[in-house]
Nucleic acid binder design. Structure first.
Length: 108
DNA sequence: CCCGTGACATCTG
DNA sequence: ACAGATGCCACGG
């Protein structure tokens, strides 16, 4: 399909929320990856959207580079990964665990 | 229109 | 491997 022109230029916020909502269970994507899907490199901008509007989307499926969970939310995201069967890996970090990006990274 | 902010990424020493 | 510094992007005031 040719969507040469978006019917309605969606705000960056809506675009990010749409991508995150598209991530299937058991998979994850990094902030940089999400930004890249939108054609931008604003990984921080994605984090801003998540912090403000990520309450209604599977925010735990969006992680940082290196397979680390969102800063300050590792404890909250952990049960979600175990529930969805996301491949985790032990870590000596304060988070206590790390996500196996090689196996869980979402590939469209 | 300019500045500060933020659930980041990447490079260098 | 670790810590610090710099770059990037979008949004609100």
């Amino acid at each position: 399909m040719v969507r040469a022109l978006p019917e309605q230029p969606p705000g960056f916020v809506d675009a990010v929320l749409a991508v995150v909502d598209d991530i299937p269970p058991g998979c994850v994507a990094t902030y940089g990856d999400v930004a890249a899907m939108l054609g931008s490199r604003g990984a921080r901008a994605v984090g801003q959207v998540m912090a403000r509007y990520g309450a209604d989307v599977p925010w735990w499926r969006v992680i940082r580079a290196g397979g680390r969970p969102p800063a300050g939310h590792a404890e909250r995201a952990r049960p979600h990964y175990e529930l969805e069967g996301t491949p985790l890996r032990p870590s000596a970090d304060d988070d206590g665990y790390r996500i196996d990006l090689a196996a869980a990274r979402w590939r469209p």
